[in-house]
Amino acid sequence: MGVRVEIADTLQQALRLLAESEPPVRLLAGGTDLLVQWRRDPPDSGTVIVLGHIPELQVIEARPEGIYIGSGATHAALRDSALLKAKVPAIVTAASGVGGRQIQSTGTIGGNIANASPAADLAPPLLIADAQVVLQSVRGERKVPLDTFYRGYREIDLREGEMIVGFLVRPLEPGGVEFFRKLGMRSAHAIAKVSVAMRLVLEGRKVCRARIALGSLAEVPLRAEEAEKWLEGRELSRETIQEIGERVRAVVRPIDDIRSTARYRRWVAGNLVRGFVESLAAGD
């Protein structure tokens, strides 16, 4: 009995450890979720692989196929990245609102997604950037779109021996604008009771492409695809503004819990989406 803690220095080493270590194997990145869980319910067997020292996992760079963000990039690194600020600004806004400074310095984007919470702050901005989850195991690499990676409440498409090594996201198109807003029970150190991310690509007053993603509004971080499709091709008219909020409210599946109520969440999600569209129309 007892837990073996392995500190991996390279990605290859981490993958090998993941394949060969005494199960159950747990991957520890920033520890901001796991250490809290372990205080109540500490592991008593198997292996913990520490990922925080692997340089390959911390890369943030532009690649031909998109912007690549290593799973070990901390919220602080996301927050301070000029590349991300220019190309996927909603990620920067979301990362600046995670916990407080201490949590931002140690928590990672990979951990935020692997924790599989419907309230994950980084999920909506990744979803609107058509993020692909890059997964690796000793057997090879696999890419999965983030919106299918979530399979149900606290359930993700992560196979035995696999780890999230990074995310590929689509940089903001010309004419594109992003929005992110999170509501918590206080100004910082809060779990989202509602979060909304949007990316709209405009030609004049016409919406060419729309992405709307929502946190804490269903059992998984959700893309409002029907609302996106409805919005695409429309003018930013008074009618569009009136209707878009209702379209979003129609697709969410919020619940009552200790943080908020389903009715409030549904209403406010529509307002935030509508408010962003309205601000674009007004700014024109």
């Binding site: 206080r186 100004s187 910082a188 779990i191 200790i258």
Partner: peptide, 11 residues
């Protein structure tokens, strides 16, 4: 403290 919410400095 995750569920019992008290004000932080920004509030």
């Amino acid at each position: 403290l995750q569920t019992y919410i008290v004000p932080g400095v920004l509030d």
